[in-house]
Design a binder for these strands. Sequence first.
DNA 1: GCGTCGATGGCA
DNA 2: GCCATCGACGCG
Length: 209
Amino acid sequence: MVKRYASAALGDGFKKLGHAFFQRPALALAPDLIGTILVRRVQGKKYRVRIVETEAYVGAHDLACHASKGRTRRTEVMFGPGGRAYVYFIYGMYEMFNIVASVEGDAQAVLIRAAEPLDGWEADLSGPGKFTRALHITRTQNGIDLTGSDIFLLNDPSYQPQLAATKRIGVDYAKEWKDELFRFLDAKSSAVSKRPPAKSRRRPRQVTE
DNA sequence: GCGTCGATGGCA
DNA sequence: GCCATCGACGCG
């Protein structure tokens, strides 16, 4: 089901986010990414989306973080400096797009789980697999600099998300890390990948404002 | 609207 | 043998 979003025409006065924005702990970056605009240029087209859901993976000690398996060919990018893409393949079908956070040697990342299409584009971006599919992001983008031209981000000071935090999705194996409130979402958005269970939906934990 | 389940392949 | 998913299906 493709949802429609009432979005005003957007100007181009937004500021591009640079390395300093990304080279912070994932727990600081993940909520700050909510409401920002991601631009994807591919096949001569430009797509803009608003990020509405993220998850922080906070380092090699975080058992839900791929880096906890050690420094391998797959996880290598995460050990590099923040501001690059970490794209991996999962479930035999899906590519997952992450933004590497923190600094060289500290393997942290933020998974982008959902977004809203802008500029009148109709697409369902309400899930990490759907997001990458619609934006033509695959493992060939693994490691690219996110301050370049293929994928980059813009701030949008005029947009004020209603920030909430919940547990991360699908990490029940991660022992004491599974219940950390490391998933961030814009409660105003109908594009979040899964509505929280009814109980917590009534009162999402406020993390700002 | 919600729970269950199969597809499918890279990784350790 | 898992797994940061999705969509189809059955239910009533």
